[in-house]
């Protein structure tokens, strides 16, 4: 038994880091991702109200505010909020039409739901003290599996066994086809993995890097000589990384959505 190690390995790492930095710097880059109950300090059950609940509800509320309250006036000449709502609508609709094809339009509300949820979860997660729901593999895995199951079901419902021609590259020379089919099958099943880990990993990495730089920022309080150089640099780095994260928050939502469209196109038109 190792009671100390079993308690928190992360904490132990933090003390080690403190030791090597020679001061009271506190490194807890992963603590921001902890799922905690909103009220009390008990265990996290299935239906406990947690910070996950809070920030998901906020994402839904933000989407509601933008797309429903923002367009409630139904103006012919749109105001600022309505313009943004229409921009988002046009953006995703055009993406679905261009990438997945006209016959994918019935899936437009579904894809729009994914996009709005991810983009607002990402942006709300950038607020200080916020919890980023999309940085959790459990969340993104569900999102990716939803897409994977939808695409597979749609493919088989639309084309039956013909959907399997997705894996049989008929433009390749015949001896190569079985090899390519194996690769295609593997890549097909890796899709939900990369799809979910890309989003969660990007969010997690960016936020953790910000936290690491943030841990260096109070250096000047410990040692003026070192801190006078390190503190401004780390604040500058936080600013730069934060700007990059704003970009990444949008790009990852965009990439998740466009990959959903690409997979959907494969399901609707499996023939290469």
């Amino acid at each position: 038994m190792r009671p100390a190690g079993a308690a928190t390995k992360g904490r132990r790492m933090a003390t080690e880091a403190q030791g090597s930095e020679g001061g009271g710097l506190v490194f807890h880059p992963m603590d921001q991702f902890m799922v905690k109950p909103l009220f009390g300090d008990g265990a996290v059950g299935m239906f406990t109200l947690t910070n996950v609940t809070l920030w998901m509800v906020l994402a839904v509320a933000a989407t509601f505010a933008l797309l429903v309250l923002g367009t409630s006036k139904r103006e012919i000449v749109p105001g600022r909020t309505q313009s943004i709502a229409e921009l988002a609508y046009d953006f995703i609709r055009k993406m679905v039409e261009d990438v997945a094809g006209k016959d994918a339009l019935p899936f437009f509300p579904y894809i729009m739901t994914l996009f709005m949820f991810i983009v607002f979860a990402n942006f709300l997660g950038l607020l200080p003290m916020a919890f980023t729901t999309t940085s959790h593999i459990a969340v993104t895995a569900v999102l990716a599996m939803l897409v994977f199951v939808t695409v597979t079901v749609v493919g088989f419902v639309r084309h039956g066994a013909g959907f399997l021609s997705l894996f049989w590259v008929s433009s390749a020379p015949l001896p190569l086809r079985p090899v390519l089919a194996l690769i295609e099958v593997i890549s097909y099943f890796v899709r939900p993995v990369s799809h979910s880990i890309r989003l969660a990993g990007n969010m997690m990495a960016g936020h953790a890097v910000v936290k690491v730089f943030a841990a260096f920022a109070p250096m000047i309080a410990l040692s003026v000589g070192v801190g006078i150089l390190v503190t401004p640099l780390s604040i500058l780095a936080i600013t730069a990384i934060y700007a990059l994260e704003v970009l990444v928050a949008f790009i990852q939502a965009y990439v998740f959505t466009i990959l959903t469209c690409v997979y959907l196109r494969d399901a609707l038109h499996p023939h290469h």
């Binding site: 261009d98 990369s194 880990i197 890309r198 990993g201 965009y254 990439v255 466009i258 990959l259």
Partner: peptide, 19 residues
């Protein structure tokens, strides 16, 4: 769109190593 898809695929592998 193709650019972003390509970047996403290339980046996913880096995220794997990070993971």
């Amino acid at each position: 769109a193709t650019l972003f898809i390509g970047i996403a695929f290339a980046e996913a592998l880096g995220i794997f190593s990070f993971l």
